[in-house]
Design a protein around this nucleic acid. Structure first.
Lengths: 219, 219
DNA sequence: CTTTTTGCGTCAGCTTCCTGTAAGGTTTCG
DNA sequence: CGAAACCTTACAGGAAGCTGACGCAAAAAG
């Protein structure tokens, strides 16, 4: 993986560069933002590590311009700012992840791996059920090549099935995964969710056992 | 997934609660440690998010006591401390993971998933009877590799046999497992159910003892 | 801020198939 | 042989489940 490191602190920069190199990636290290722009224009990178440097918004502006220009290279921002609002601002500006200084280098390694997995090659382990390919970590389901999007509640239910493969789950069990106190729901909420999921996942994935509950098809 | 959030900061707490809810989980949010103890005693949770709040060690003590009491619920600690040694102390106290404030909500989501996944996937014990493999928790019966599906009533009867291995069960006893009230059934309902079960489970599994009742084949 | 979209709980009408009953066949045993 | 006990099949009724529609509220878009 090719990494561009934008960091003005010489000590931190060299430490990060060495760590990334030790992880087996190639690193270009620049100290200034305008130089970073040149590097990005010259060659493609798989990841940019961007130190926001000073809280004057220059780093964020750089990131916004980069995104506005259509560049989708994953960016992890490094920041000493400890306000959540700044972090969110960074993510809104188009960052993919962040690291708060001081961070330890193992954490950096972990983030690198995560981003690398997310954006390149074949990533997380897949669970296959019939014609479905499920990436639990990414919350992604592919159904014969097409992406299936589940809502939050639907995912919660689907996850409950995945965690108990082949098990029969009663409606009350499923309700408990959605609601804190078993509110003795006098309606068919679960049935409706199951119905909506079946429409997305296809028939035959979730089996009904009359009077007892539901079960996920195995393998 | 059922999550207990222990957080005294109202702003951060509500943000975290909303994020967890958006991920499709149910959340109970308490502001004080002793309340957290009550909640944990009252109901099982799949995960505890514990803010250490102040660096006076109270949160860590709470965690240590929890572990000492035999509770193994996964715990992620939230901490403002940015010293690696403090994180290690938290992990030693029995935490499963940690998040350093301020943290990104997506990060929280990722950790939730990771912890939830780490603690799932425990296979159920199997009971073997002849060529049948029975998973009582999953309410699943495998007959020479193929899944056998029993209806609600059939499973209720089968469970009665399983709970009294080798015992002879009279028809009236079996009727009582189906009808809580003494429903004085004037027909051959049990016989019919037994017949239908034998068709699914195979001959020789349920033995008839003329004039007395039925018995499940041993071993 | 207003408008539009989306998620989700509820309801009502429809469909499915479980289940109790009965009727006739088969086995067991005096 | 005959009666009692049990087995098996068929069937109707109704409970359990399915799904399109609606409304509200929250989020996203403008």
């Amino acid at each position: 993986m090719r990494v561009l490191l934008v960091e003005d602190d010489m000590v931190l920069g060299s430490a990060v560069r060495d760590q990334i190199a030790a992880d087996g990636h190639s690193v270009d290290w620049v100290q200034r933002l305008d130089a970073a722009g040149d590097y990005l224009r010259a060659a493609p990178y798989d990841l940019v590590l961007l130190d926001l440097m000073l809280p004057d918004g220059l780093g964020l502006n750089f990131l916004r311009k980069l995104r506005a220009s259509g560049d989708v290279t994953p960016v992890i921002i490094l920041t000493a700012l400890d306000q959540i609002s700044d972090r969110i601002e960074g993510l809104n500006a188009g960052a993919d992840d962040y690291l708060v200084k001081p961070f330890d280098l193992q954490e950096l390694t972990a983030r690198l791996k995560a981003v690398a997995r997310r954006y390149s090659g074949n990533p997380n382990p897949l669970v296959k059920i019939g014609e479905l390919e499920i990436d639990i970590a990414a919350r992604t389901i592919m159904r014969s090549g097409k992406t299936v999007t589940l809502t939050a509640r639907e995912w919660a239910l689907f996850e409950a099935f995945l965690q108990h493969p082949g098990n029969l789950l009663s409606k009350s069990q499923l309700e408990e995964t959605l609601y804190t106190f078993d509110a003795e729901i006098e309606s068919n909420t679960i049935e409706v969710h199951i119905s909506r999921m079946r429409k997305k996942l296809g028939a035959g994935v979730i089996e009904t056992v009359r009077g007892m509950g539901y079960r996920l098809e195995q393998s």
